[in-house]
């Protein structure tokens, strides 16, 4: 986590993309492959089977197909924010190339980094920032400390003295009454 070599940043979205309308951030993808070597076999299959469908479904994305001789195949995706992503498709079957291309298509183009926090807000809190004096009794400002009447422990049960006094109060009245009636 606390590594200076690995970049870290906060969560971000490209200009609230998708809130009103969605703009595909992938602007151009280049499929580099060799016409002869077996490491490009899956990539060549992909171009034969699926590439036309991909271009029909994504008219906003430019697709370049670029033969290179005797080199391992790779995809280069260029995004609206100016960044490039490069994925090696060496020895991959056509399905896997398809998955990687889908991955590149759905990305925002922002660099993948360690997230410092999984949340972010640009709008300040509606109820205001918390502070230590929130919901405090204002009379504390005028109190001189220590104020023993403020910090005594709360007791819900009665003490023995209270119970005795209560009992005695009842008994006193009763005893006087009974004594007078007897007399």
């Amino acid at each position: 986590m606390s590594n200076r070599a690995i970049p870290n940043a906060f969560v971000k979205n490209v200009l609230q993309n998708g809130l009103g309308r969605y703009i595909c951030q992938l602007q151009r993808v280049t499929l580099n492959f060799c016409k002869a070597t077996p490491s490009s076999l899956g990539t060549r299959d992909f171009i034969e089977k699926y590439l036309v469908d991909f271009t029909r479904e994504n008219p906003g994305t430019v697709v370049y197909v670029k033969p290179i001789r005797n080199r391992a195949p790779f995809l280069v995706a260029e995004y609206l924010n100016g960044r490039q992503e490069r994925v090696s498709t060496k020895d991959m079957p056509a399905d896997e190339v398809c998955k990687w291309l889908e991955h590149l298509r759905t990305r925002s183009g922002a660099q993948i980094v360690n997230l410092r926090k999984e949340w972010l807000t640009n709008t300040p809190s509606t109820q205001g920032v918390w502070h230590p004096f929130l919901n405090k009794n204002p009379s504390l400002a005028g109190t001189s400390f220590p104020a023993p009447e403020l910090y005594g422990a709360k007791t819900e049960s009665k003490s023995a003295t209270d119970m005795v006094l209560e009992e005695a109060g009842v008994k006193k009245v009763g005893s006087v009454d009974s004594a007078s009636s007897k007399e």
């Binding site: 405090k136 403020l150 005594g152 422990a153």
Partner: peptide
Amino acid sequence: DQIRQVQP
């Protein structure tokens, strides 16, 4: 401010 005591 004051912290409330733990026992009466």
